[in-house]
Design a protein around this nucleic acid. Structure first.
Length: 399
DNA sequence: AATGCGGGGCA
DNA sequence: TGCCCAGCATT
């Protein structure tokens, strides 16, 4: 069998398998390019089972591009809470506004236009063009690279930029005439269900017969991939500040800056204790440091006791969190009109004025706030703080 | 080309 | 519990 026949066989067998094996997923129930787009952004770095409930809630709340474009950003972030990589949510809304302004509110059936949308890179461009518009534009993600590297025994490092380009060229040769949509989804489906990262299910694979990786016995060692650096440890001290008097039953939280890690998410106040794990001060030393560091930021707290420890891993940082129950220190609590808060508002407003309207969100001050359990329904928290706060409020309920 | 950016699943 | 998964933006 020559090379062309080999490729044709792969595509035909894979497509036939997909037609009878494909899963019934929410975004496969319609051909609305908006739904395809939302699902593809959510599916970046995220598994299907995790995405499904988010997709349902998100598309129910924002059923159209216009609805998404016109929603408050905080609402969009709240519907992304727990999914991670929160810039995806922000870029999604920016792109929706792009589509409203440039393409009359409809996803353009055009490669260059799609590729120009915020948060849409080479992979998502291919996914939208092929899945939604049935155009033969390659959508090469980790699944596709795994499948192709095994079937065609490609030993290039998939972390290299050039390898993805090579795979895209290969996919262009593999597209069956008029079947781009099914074929793109078929490769993803095979990667997700059969050609899995560890212990692939070769015996049930529709293309096992001519899989070069399996025939050579190296399917387990493909794809070749350089390892990522381990996350650097960070020791942090966290204040769970309980309100007094009129603020009784409330907890002090703050919103993170608009850029960087967990942008615009809410969290418990915390400070860096030490650059590496295991060297953080303990007990009274930690409580003194926490109170001192927060006071420098204009927040007066009095740590009472150590409550619990928690961990949170990002791809590049590992947080070890020591959470301390604190009382408010009346002298220096953040109030509306507080000097530091006012300066932050002014700074955000200035940044907004300098930037184009399309790129910038409305000025949202980085602010402190006293919240109740009910506020948890509207503010978006990273998972680690979500768990701590839910735990805390439910314990308060029992008293 | 290298780095920043979450969270969950599995052995 | 430790390891694996890996798109897009920015610089």
């Amino acid at each position: 069998m020559n090379n062309t026949e080999h490729k044709s066989t792969f595509s035909t067998e894979l497509l036939n398998w997909y037609m009878v094996s494909k899963r019934d997923l929410p975004w496969r129930r319609h051909r609305d390019p908006y739904m395809i787009w939302i699902s593809e952004i959510m599916l970046q770095q995220t598994r299907v089972d995790t995405v499904i409930p988010y997709f349902q809630r998100f598309t129910e709340r924002f059923p159209t591009i216009q609805a998404l474009a016109e929603a408050p950003e905080e609402d969009v972030l709240k519907h992304w809470e727990g999914l991670g990589y929160y810039s995806r949510a922000r870029n999604l809304q920016l792109a929706a506004r792009q589509i409203m302004e440039l393409y009359d509110g409809r996803m353009p059936d055009d490669v260059e236009a799609v590729a120009g949308l915020k948060g849409v890179g080479p992979y998502t461009t291919g996914a939208i063009m092929s899945i939604a518009f049935n155009r033969p534009v390659p959508a090469v993600d980790g699944n596709v690279m795994r499948v192709l590297s095994r079937y065609f025994l490609i030993e290039d490092d998939i972390m290299k930029q050039g390898t993805r380009k090579q795979m895209e060229a290969l996919v262009r040769e593999l597209f069956p005439e008029g079947q781009a949509s099914h074929f793109t989804q078929a490769m993803m489906e095979l990667g997700a269900l059969v050609c899995t990262p560890k212990s692939p299910h070769c015996l049930t694979c529709p293309v096992m017969e001519h899989c070069a990786g399996r025939l050579a016995g190296v399917e387990e060692t493909l794809p070749v991939k350089t390892k990522a650096k381990p996350p650097r440890p960070e020791e942090r001290l966290v204040a769970l500040v309980e309100g007094r008097g009129s603020r009784s039953g409330r907890v002090l939280v703050r919103q993170r800056p608009a850029k960087g890690l967990l942008a615009r998410m809410w969290e418990l106040p915390h400070v860096l204790a030490a650059a590496s794990a295991g060297t953080a001060p303990a007990g009274d030393g930690a409580m003194d440091r926490l109170a001192g560091a927060l006071r420098e930021e204009g927040v007066g707290v009095a740590p009472v006791r150590h409550l619990l420890n928690a961990e949170h891993t990002f791809s590049h940082i590992h947080w070890n969190l020591q959470v301390f129950q604190c009382e408010e220190a009346p002298a220096a609590l953040p109030e509306p009109g507080h000097a530091a808060a006012a300066a932050q508002v002014a700074e955000a407003a200035a940044a907004y004025a300098e930037s184009g309207a399309l790129d910038a969100a409305p000025p949202e001050p980085v602010a402190y706030r006293w919240i109740t359990a009910a506020d948890m329904d509207t503010l978006a928290f990273p998972n680690v703080f979500l768990k701590i706060l839910r735990n805390y409020f439910s314990a308060q309920d029992e008293q």
